[in-house]
Structure formats: C-alpha cells, structure tokens
C-alpha cells in the first residue's frame, strides 16, 4: 500500500509533548471511511512510519484527526510539522469497537492517558445518536495538565457521566485524585446488560478488567484496544504478532473473552 499525501490543516498542542493534527488530502487524495477504533500509518517523510489511532469523528469525510505523543524519531518529526506541512497516510487499518452491539446497553468507556484518543470517535458517534444517558466515561490521567480534550470533557459531561481522576494535582484542583479503578469500582451497573471499552496502558486495563469481572461483567462484554510494534499494518511482517493474532490485522480492538489466555502471559 502506497501512502496518500496529506496536509496539516490544523495543529493543536494538547500539553507539552502531545499534540493533535487535523489532516486533509492533497490533490486527488482520498479520505477513506473509517470505524471508531481503527488506526492509520502516518509517514513522516524521510524518517519513517508510526501507527496512530484515528481520534476524530468517523462521519466526517473531509479528513482525519490524530492525537500523538512524542516518543521517538518519527513522532518527533510529526511534532515538528506545522500547518501546511505534508505527510503520508496509509489506512485505515484494523478492527473497530463493536458500536452496532451497543443498543439497549449501559456503556462504560474506560480510558487512561492517551487512551482517550481512540475512544473519542466512539463518544462522538454515541452523542450524535443522542445516546449519552447510557454512557459513563472513566478517564484517568497523570495530572490535570496532562489531560486530553479538556474543553470537550466539560462539554461531554453535560450529556453523559464523565468521571475524571488524576494521579497527582496541584492545589486548586477540585476533582478526584486517585487511580481510575476507584470510580469504576464505586459505580453501579447491571453487569448483564453492560458493555465496557477499555483503552490505555496495559497495566491499567489489567486492573480495570479485574474490577469489572469482580462486579460480575462477563468477559464477552469487555473490549480493549491493544498496542504492539506495528510495521506493515497488513499482517504480513509479523512485528505485532501477539499469541496467534496480529494486532494490526486482528486488532487493535479485541474482545477480552477471545484473548484472555495470552493477555495475562507476561512479556508476550
């Protein structure tokens, strides 16, 4: 697959080291439709490619939105792009959150750190359908300054239950301080009619899954987004093999029931 060339229409600094790019295609380039949870390969010319989840609305056909944390050479090159800058985009790739199975269910979205980005398209979709009353978002971040989409969190809280917790905060923060598992453990839901989507650091998801299972949620109702070192994004190179699956092709969204055998194998 050859990357399409895209242009940075808008760039927003979420907080130091984490930024959001709004992209649109150049010339005859196209914007393929995508499903919430899918990712693209972003190509910083001359440097390399990285897999990045799409974090914008899935019904907007004019471009893509990505939120990126600077970590290595490629993401640093992407960070240096300014409005008008160009990059290559391949995709979208991978599996998506099972949005079609949400009707009539209580929906728990559990995000940690940058894990809110792949869940944002789900939130957009649910809110556009007027389904906010069934949604509860639990968002854990390192500190109030390192929270994504702060304005949107306030806006979303008018339509759905949003519970934010941070690991540490300066004086003046009136929100919750503690682990994201605390509000999750304290919430009441009908385990048989609920569904949970988890995205964030693997260790966070592990503890959250434990809480959900203790509260009676079946493994078949828990979905999580996994990360590994994806390269080709088409299941050929083997870099992201995880047990019998390839994260890029069979994931990144998995049902916990299907992967729990190897989810708990260390160093896999």
């Amino acid at each position: 697959m050859v990357p399409e060339v895209f242009r940075v229409e808008r760039r927003a600094e979420e907080f130091p080291g984490t930024f959001t790019l709004h992209l649109s295609p150049i010339g005859m380039g196209r914007v393929a439709g995508f499903q919430p949870g899918q990712f693209s390969m972003l190509y910083a010319f001359g440097t390399g490619e990285v897999p990045i989840s799409i974090s914008g609305p899935s019904d907007q056909g004019s471009g893509y939105v990505y939120t990126i944390r600077t970590h290595g050479m490629v993401t640093r090159a992407l960070e240096n792009l300014r409005e008008g800058g160009q990059l290559g985009v391949r995709g979208p790739f991978g599996s998506d959150w099972p949005i079609s199975s949400l009707a009539g269910r209580e929906i728990l979205l559990v995000a940690g750190g940058l894990g809110l980005a792949p869940l944002r398209p789900v939130i957009y979709t649910l809110l556009s359908r007027g389904g906010g009353s069934a949604v509860r978002l639990f968002y854990g971040a390192r500190s109030p300054r390192e929270m994504l989409y702060r304005d949107e969190l306030v806006e979303w809280s008018r339509s759905m239950d949003v519970q934010v917790s941070v690991d540490q905060a300066e004086r003046g923060w009136t929100g919750r301080i503690g682990a994201v598992t605390d509000p999750l453990a304290a919430t009441s839901f009908d385990a048989g009619k609920s569904i949970a989507f988890l995205c964030g650091p693997e260790v966070m998801m592990r503890f959250c899954i434990r809480v959900l299972l203790e509260k009676g949620m079946p493994p078949s109702a828990i979905y999580l987004s996994m990360e590994r070192n994806m390269k080709c994004a088409t299941g050929h190179c083997g870099h992201c093999q995880w047990g019998p699956s390839f994260i890029c092709k069979d994931g990144p969204v998995f049902r916990y029931e299907d992967i729990r055998q190897w989810f708990h194998i260390r160093a896999l």
Binding site: I52, T75, G112, L114, R142, G200, M204, E227
Partner: peptide, 25 residues
C-alpha cells in the same frame, strides 16, 4: 488493601512513561 492497590497504581506512573510510541495507538 484497596487503597494500597490504588496507591501502587499511582506509584507506577503508568500514564507518564509510554512503553510504545503513543498510548492507545
């Protein structure tokens, strides 16, 4: 025990040190 577990999670600083290029991506 629950408070200790939560404190341990906070001590891990899981949101601060991504093991891969970008959390959730």
């Amino acid at each position: 025990t629950e408070r200790l577990q939560a404190t341990r999670m906070q001590l891990l600083d899981i949101y601060g040190h991504p093991s891969r290029p970008a959390g959730g991506q």
